[in-house]
Amino acid sequence: MDVFMKGLSKAKEGVVAAAEKTKQGVAEAAGKTKEGVLYVGSKTKEGVVHGVATVAEKTKEQVTNVGGAVVTGVTAVAQKTVEGAGSIAAATGFVKKDQLGKNEEGAPQEGILEDMPVDPDNEAYEMPSEEGYQDYEPEA
């Protein structure tokens, strides 16, 4: 019985440690998101679009440190934060509304985080759909 109880105690310690790591990862992701939003706020009209992409990228980098179902929630929060940063930029006159959601080359930025393969159960990952990809044929 002692062996059984000791095993359960060790398992509990492992769960607590994993929860603490997840909590730490979420806190880091939130900190990076805040950094990115402050970065966007300090940019001029020309830099705002690039700044919004930076927020998304920093958040995406930190999301990889967070495991399990938390990833889905962090990704949703990050996307809403990026959308909010863009709205703030438009409201303050840093950028025109028609410039939001495009990178410096004018290509749409939507789907940055949505296409990231995420499995809350950590069982399997699927690649994003290939609808947006084109076949590449090298020139002879």
Rank of each mutant, 00 (worst) to 15 (best):
M1K: 00
M1Y: 00
M1S: 15
M1D: 00
D2E: 01
D2G: 00
D2Q: 12
V3D: 02
V3M: 11
V3Q: 14
M5S: 10
M5G: 06
M5T: 05
K6G: 01
K6I: 02
G7A: 05
G7T: 14
G7D: 00
K10A: 06
K10E: 05
K10P: 06
A11H: 00
A11E: 00
K12S: 06
E13N: 10
E13F: 14
E13S: 14
G14P: 09
G14M: 04
G14Y: 10
G14N: 01
V15P: 00
V15F: 12
V16H: 11
V16R: 08
V16A: 03
V16M: 14
A17E: 10
A17I: 07
A19C: 03
A19E: 03
A19L: 10
E20N: 04
E20Q: 08
K21T: 07
K21V: 05
K21Q: 02
K21C: 05
T22W: 12
T22K: 01
T22I: 12
T22R: 02
K23Q: 14
K23V: 03
K23W: 11
G25Q: 15
A27C: 10
A27R: 13
A27Y: 13
E28V: 14
E28W: 05
A29C: 15
A29R: 15
A30E: 00
A30T: 06
G31I: 13
K32T: 10
K34D: 01
K34H: 04
K34T: 15
K34A: 10
E35N: 07
E35S: 14
E35T: 12
G36Q: 04
G36E: 02
G36P: 03
G36W: 12
V37H: 00
V37N: 00
V37W: 07
Y39S: 13
Y39L: 04
Y39C: 07
V40P: 00
G41P: 01
G41K: 02
S42V: 06
K43V: 11
T44V: 11
T44G: 06
K45Q: 12
K45V: 13
K45H: 01
K45M: 11
K45N: 08
E46R: 13
G47F: 15
V48S: 02
V48I: 09
V49P: 03
V49W: 11
V49D: 01
H50Q: 14
H50D: 15
H50W: 02
H50L: 03
G51K: 09
V52W: 04
V52C: 01
V52T: 07
V52M: 03
A53T: 11
A53R: 00
A53M: 01
V55M: 10
V55C: 09
V55A: 06
A56N: 04
A56S: 10
A56D: 02
E57I: 13
E57A: 08
E57C: 12
E57F: 12
K58R: 12
K58L: 14
T59L: 05
T59F: 09
T59P: 02
T59D: 01
K60L: 08
K60F: 11
K60T: 08
K60Q: 03
V63M: 06
V63D: 00
T64A: 04
T64N: 14
T64H: 09
N65V: 14
N65E: 05
N65D: 09
V66F: 06
V66L: 02
V66I: 08
G67R: 12
G67H: 09
G68R: 15
G68F: 08
G68A: 15
A69W: 14
A69G: 08
V70C: 01
V71W: 14
V71P: 04
V71S: 12
V71L: 04
V71M: 10
T72R: 09
T72D: 10
G73W: 08
G73T: 05
V74S: 00
V74E: 00
T75K: 14
T75Y: 08
T75M: 15
A76L: 02
V77M: 13
V77H: 09
V77K: 01
V77F: 11
A78H: 13
A78S: 13
K80G: 08
K80I: 06
T81L: 09
T81F: 06
V82I: 07
E83L: 04
G84A: 15
G84Y: 12
A85T: 15
A85K: 02
S87M: 12
I88C: 07
I88P: 01
I88W: 13
A89E: 03
A89Q: 06
A91H: 10
T92R: 09
G93M: 04
G93P: 10
G93S: 05
G93A: 14
F94H: 04
F94I: 00
K96R: 06
K97G: 04
D98F: 04
Q99L: 11
Q99A: 05
Q99R: 05
Q99F: 11
L100M: 04
L100Y: 02
G101P: 04
G101H: 11
K102D: 09
E104W: 02
E104C: 06
E104N: 14
E104G: 13
E104Q: 13
E104Y: 11
E105G: 04
G106V: 07
A107C: 07
A107R: 10
A107W: 15
P108I: 10
E110K: 02
E110S: 10
E110H: 05
G111V: 03
I112M: 02
I112F: 07
E114N: 13
E114I: 15
D115A: 03
M116E: 07
P117M: 08
P117S: 09
P117N: 06
P117D: 05
V118M: 07
D119Y: 05
D119L: 04
P120L: 11
D121V: 03
N122F: 11
N122G: 09
N122Y: 14
N122T: 07
N122M: 15
N122Q: 05
E123W: 12
E123Q: 09
E123P: 00
A124T: 09
A124E: 05
A124R: 10
Y125H: 13
E126W: 07
M127Y: 07
M127P: 02
M127D: 05
E130S: 14
E130G: 06
E131G: 09
E131F: 08
E131Y: 15
G132N: 11
G132C: 04
G132V: 14
G132D: 04
Y133S: 05
Y133H: 06
Q134M: 08
Q134S: 07
D135A: 02
D135T: 05
D135Q: 07
Y136A: 04
E137W: 03
E137S: 12
P138R: 05
P138V: 10
P138Q: 08
P138G: 12
E139I: 12
E139G: 07
E139W: 10
E139V: 11
E139L: 07
A140Y: 14
